[in-house]
Amino acid sequence: MVDILNALVAFTNFVIIPASAYGAQLAIGALGVTLIYGILRFSNFAHGETMAFGTMVVLLVTGLFQSWGISLGPLPTALLALPFGILGASALVLFTDRTVYKFYRRVKAAPVMLVIVSMGVMFMMNGIIRMIVGTDDRRFADGERFIIRARDFKEMTGLSEGLALRTTQVLTIVVAIATVALLFWFLNKTRTGKSMRAYSDNEDLALLSGINPERVVMITWLVVAALATVAGTLYGLDKSFKPFVYMQLLLPIFASAIVGGLGSPIGAIAGGFVIAFSEVTITYAFKKVVTYLGPEGWRPDGLVQLLSTDYKFAVSFAILIIVLLFKPTGLFKGKSV
């Protein structure tokens, strides 16, 4: 019995908690991709860099606050800096939209053209970020590191397996829930949010109804900048800030959005968790869990790991391919165009 509990704790500690946090980060990232797809109708390859840019501003402002001695006590100072990150990312995407994307909307360019354009934007943002902060790995999480320490948990429960709950993990979930609730309230209850959905649903009819497309596009960019900054900051707090990582996140984020159904916000959230849980479960070494569950005194030879963590991209990719083959519109019906 105790062994089963221990196995459960190990599984929670190494799979459920990290995957939930990662899933929330992916979900918020995928929401940004899916909103751009729904409103501007292209896959934005620069989304990873937008996340990196927003996070970079958060990181810099956090540093500034720390040097002034401002802090949030047990919570990371980065939370205070978050609004500034969102402002920075908003300014960046609005500037990009004005100078780059607007032209292609006007000439009604094919969506694939916009994808290539977004690749150029990605290149430039990449260069700008590196020019500002370089390529170093930076940690900017401060405050209390743990909510529950593994050692305390062991003492508390008397189990041999510890359960650690980091502040950033809980924070990720809380912020993610708040963000998603706010987003859905905005999309479903406000006039502006509804007009965005209307535009995404049927552009011509939205125009006929007097919805101003440029305003919808602008609001979308603002929302996307906020989502990207939140996702990037949560990821950076949970792990660390490395500019190149955000480009690598592009694949799992796209996979989440597509698996859920491109253009569908609910789908993006579901997709994020599907991808995160598959990735973490498949790359987790189950040795500990199996040892607890197996007969007394027996332990497996190997790590009991389905796939090495180096292949976590392969997991997103495999799920993506399976969905593309069997349900091309995604779990929640996305756009078929």
């Binding site: 509804k194 209307a198 009819l205 919805i211």
Partner: peptide, 24 residues
Amino acid sequence: FVPQVRNIFPTMSVRENLEMGAFI
């Protein structure tokens, strides 16, 4: 004006369709 095709917002509720009609 009611277009011949694509004349509703399919993923929005009927009420929301009417609200969008009143957008201006």
